[in-house]
Design a protein around this nucleic acid. Structure first.
Length: 593
RNA sequence: GCGCGAGUAGCUCAGCUGGAUAGAGCGUCGGCCUCCGGAGCCGAAGGUCGCGGGUUCGAAUCCCGCCUUGCGCACCA
């Protein structure tokens, strides 16, 4: 039992003695100002109404009843409108360090998740271009959220969804053809919605190599001679039609384009230190028998695909109707703004349908909880996906899946905004950003703001190797602590709690640092519950600050034995907390800088 | 127009689910190197928490109404 737990129990007993309702739950929090004690409760103010007494008078009566012998409380006082403040003796506080050092790498973990399975889907960029900085933010958020859930006992699966079956893939392939014609000496013509980025040229070259052709012209002559017609140069619509026709008849060609871009994305993710457990292909939802494999609750027959089973199930549930030749789902009945088309007049599905099939598959694959990390521009899809999942009526809980929506990223260099746009083809890729500022800085900067806020990424600040850069500041704090052991030639593991005089840690800077270290687990569980990794980033900065202040003001090596060993123990505990916190965010904790 | 976010220091943002005198980083100004890394430390200036009501012992936080702003409202994805 920690001091807080003991205080809480004592408060509860005292409140009951005064006749408080059984449901009362005393809230203990850290006062902003350390002069107001180590812990504080508003219990007296909460009881004022039910017990019909003034807060300060109640506080006095409560304090008289409190039994705090075991909690290490050195002083109790009543302040302000009726707060009861508790002051913990230095030694009692410091003894908590023993648990930190004993637990080590696992300090901060808890098992509240009880091994329950959760799938976290993030990035999910279409394989139509390289990853850009927006994907970077999502990658960090998703990875950190996954990590937080793991630290709190959940069994997490990181998942990446590839939309490899839609119109945009055809447009990508078509764009490659345009580039092939360009390489063969024809003018460049891009219809609306096609991909103009430079990277498409790379895909075109990769395709030439893949087919063993000597150059673009030779390739087109052997595979698509019709596209070399010079009359297309002045007739873009006819060219468009011809190219799309070629693409439709050459799935192999599409495959090469998608593979090429997936490889590029995979390389970036690897540079980022990001590993997904599952890469889920949209096309697999169309595969024969996929219903049985990934969404058994749909009762799919032999050979039936997940999308077909989804349509069948929705139709039999009675929530569909036909209008204007299209098949609609009454998503309004499940809270959506308007009803949605599932199958277009031309017989193909809208993206909505495979989306529903995909989310059913998450449940079907054994994930009672699902979290989707997406940009705010996708928030319109939330209502319809949830509605579609509910309309199936297969026992998926309401509100499935959860969404974390993040705002956009604004890059700033030299005090000026760096513009990027996918359509115009000028984008700042994640690869470039990683090469420029490094993995740790990218991860920290993307993690330090809550998802809903816009994020201004100051490239110059992220590159700075000095105190003004928060990530270096934190890493430096860790490295300095390591430096103490290195210079003193002391093995951190050799210090046993039993040999430490915790009463020696009496300096104010030590008390504040110790309190922060002891708060690490509750900070983590709060961040995990709220799915807010930025709390970890803030905590690390604050704790690093406490470390630097303490380090600067108090010496460790060369002090009298009792003080030195106690401070070494504090240094080791601080090191563990910084390292564990950085680990949650996927950032390195270097021993030296 | 409807829906969902966001408005807090010059700038970028926290504010732990209603607590005490609203915080941090950057920037600005001023101090600190015989001592475990000055890649650091200390201090100062800087606020109508968008505006107006309400709820209560107590509101940046909860409710209502405005204002500004971002995003979304396809048989596109």
């Amino acid at each position: 039992m920690t001091p807080v737990d003991l205080i809480r129990a004592a408060l509860l007993d005292a409140a009951r003695e005064l006749g408080a309702p059984d449901t009362i739950a005393p809230v203990l929090e850290r006062p902003r100002d350390p002069a107001n004690g180590d812990w504080s409760t508003n219990l007296a103010m909460m009881l004022a109404k039910p017990l019909g007494d003034k807060p300060r008078a109640l506080a006095t009566r409560l304090v008289e009843k409190l039994d705090l012998a075991a909690a290490g409380v050195s002083k109790v006082d009543i302040a302000g409108p009726g707060f009861i403040n508790f002051y913990i003796a230095s030694g009692a506080n410091a003894r908590g360090l023993a648990a930190i050092v004993a637990t080590g790498d696992a300090y901060g973990r808890d098992d509240s998740g009880a091994g329950r399975r959760v799938v976290v889907e993030f990035v999910s960029a279409n394989p139509t271009g390289p990853l850009h900085v927006g994907h970077g933010r999502q990658a960090v958020l998703g990875d950190a959220i996954s990590s937080l859930l793991e630290w709190t006992g959940w069994s997490v699966s990181r998942e990446y969804y590839y939309n490899d079956a839609g119109v945009q893939i055809a447009n990508l392939a078509a764009s490659v053809v345009v580039r092939l014609r360009e390489l063969a000496g024809y003018p460049t013509q891009f219809p609306e919605g096609w991909y103009q980025g430079e990277y498409v040229l790379e895909v075109a070259r990769a395709y030439i190599a893949d087919r063993g052709a000597s150059d673009a012209k030779a390739l087109l002559q052997s595979e698509a001679p019709g596209l070399l017609d010079a009359s297309f140069d002045t007739d873009t619509p006819r060219l468009t039609h011809a190219i799309l026709g070629f693409v439709r008849e050459n799935p192999d060609f599409v495959r090469v384009a998608v593979d090429e871009l997936r490889q590029t994305q995979d390389r970036d993710l690897k540079t980022f230190g990001l590993a997904f457990d599952t890469y889920f292909l949209e096309s697999s939802l169309y595969a024969p028998s996929s219903a049985r494999a990934i969404a058994p609750m749909l009762g799919g027959s032999e050979g039936e695909s997940a999308v077909d089973a989804t349509v069948r199930k929705l139709e039999s549930s009675g929530h569909t109707y036909e209008e204007d030749g299209a098949l609609w789902l009454r998503t309004e009945e499940f809270g959506d703004d308007k009803n949605r088309v599932m199958r277009k007049r031309d017989g193909t599905y809208t993206y909505f349908l495979p989306d529903v099939a995909y989310h059913v598959s998450k449940f079907g694959r054994g994930f009672p909880r699902a979290i989707n990390v997406q940009g705010t521009d996708h928030h319109g899809t939330i209502g319809r996906v949830r509605a579609g999942v509910q309309a199936l009526d297969v026992g998926i809980p309401a509100g499935y899946p959860d969404y974390i929506l993040h705002n956009l990223v604004k890059l700033v260099r030299n005090g000026e905004e760096v513009k990027f746009s996918k359509r115009s083809g000028s984008i700042v890729t994640l690869e470039e950003l990683l090469a420029d500022v490094g993995r740790d800085a990218v991860r920290y900067f993307f993690a330090m703001r809550k998802a809903e806020s816009e994020l201004v990424f100051d490239i110059d600040l992220a590159r700075a190797q000095s105190e003004e850069n928060p990530v270096y500041y934190i890493q430096m704090a860790h490295a300095r602590l390591c430096g103490i052991f290195r210079v003193g030639d002391i093995d951190p593991l050799s210090i046993a709690a039993g040999d430490v005089d915790f009463d020696a840690l009496v300096e104010p800077e030590e008390r504040e640092l110790i309190k922060a270290l002891l708060d690490f687990p509750s900070m983590l569980s709060g961040a995990a519950e709220a799915l807010e990794p930025h709390r970890v980033a803030s905590y690390l900065l604050e704790t690093a600050q406490l470390v630097h202040t303490w380090y600067h003001k108090h010496h460790v090596l060369g002090e009298p034995h009792a003080i030195m060993s106690a401070r070494l123990f504090l240094a080791q505990a601080s090191r563990i907390v910084l390292r564990n916190g950085l680990a949650v965010l996927g950032i390195a904790a270097p021993d030296r800088m």
